[in-house]
Nucleic acid binder design. Structure first.
Length: 194
DNA sequence: CCCTGATTCGC
DNA sequence: GCGAATCAGG
């Protein structure tokens, strides 16, 4: 494959959108992320700045520490600035699927008060979840990848919040156990006559 | 371990 | 110009 105008244009577009080199490579096909990165550099858009074409040569290293800028506005109250509450949504590789904003099912803790939707999950699956949660990697949002289970555990507003992080099942966003509770067969949830 | 971009250098 | 190999970082 060669860098045709079209391909270069797509490259520019995607890079501009903040897509990663590997994602761009995947989209283009026939090239590796290295090829993409190499091209990006040759095109001179490695550093997304001025559209005017002015190339800012990076000194790369500060010459010396002669002057003391000290541009410190000096403002840092000790109070926490209200948490943004990280959404459970995780980045999707090709920016397509995206999790359907699953509210808070989180059958995480052991002795959880019966939740309206959570109690429809099969006991077996629940037990399984409780089991693996002990083995969870407990990843932070930033540590998640396409291959780590994105099942959230705990309250995002607290420190006690993490993602399962185990290896996901092929194609799914969760590990085997969490897939079990996340994707219930229609037939399986046909009960609760009570 | 997975990933990211940056750089080098033979082609 | 190209991109695999390598590097440096998360």
């Amino acid at each position: 494959m060669s860098w045709t105008d079209e391909r270069v244009e797509l490259l520019k577009k995607m890079w501009g959108e903040g897509q990663s080199a590997s994602q761009i490579a995947k989209e283009l096909g026939g090239v590796t992320r290295n090829a993409v990165i190499g091209k990006v550099h040759r095109l001179g858009l490695s550093n997304r700045n001025s559209t005017g074409g002015a190339k800012s040569a990076e000194p790369k290293e500060k010459p010396a520490a002669a002057a003391k800028p000290v541009p410190k506005p000096k403002v840092q109250p000790k109070t926490e600035p209200a948490r943004p509450i990280t959404p459970p949504a995780a980045k999707s590789a090709d920016g397509k699927p995206m999790l359907p904003a699953r509210k808070q099912i989180i059958p995480a803790g052991q002795p959880l008060p019966p939740q309206p939707s959570a109690n429809e999950i099969s006991p077996e699956a629940l037990a399984k979840v409780n089991e693996i949660e002990k083995k969870a990697k407990r990843l932070s949002l930033m540590e998640l990848t396409e291959r780590t289970c994105k099942w959230p555990v705990g309250d995002p507003a607290t420190e006690d919040f993490w993602f399962c992080g185990l290896s996901v099942q092929q194609g799914k966003p969760y590990c085997e156990a969490h897939v079990g509770v996340a994707f219930q067969p229609m037939s399986a949830r046909r009960d609760r006559k009570r």
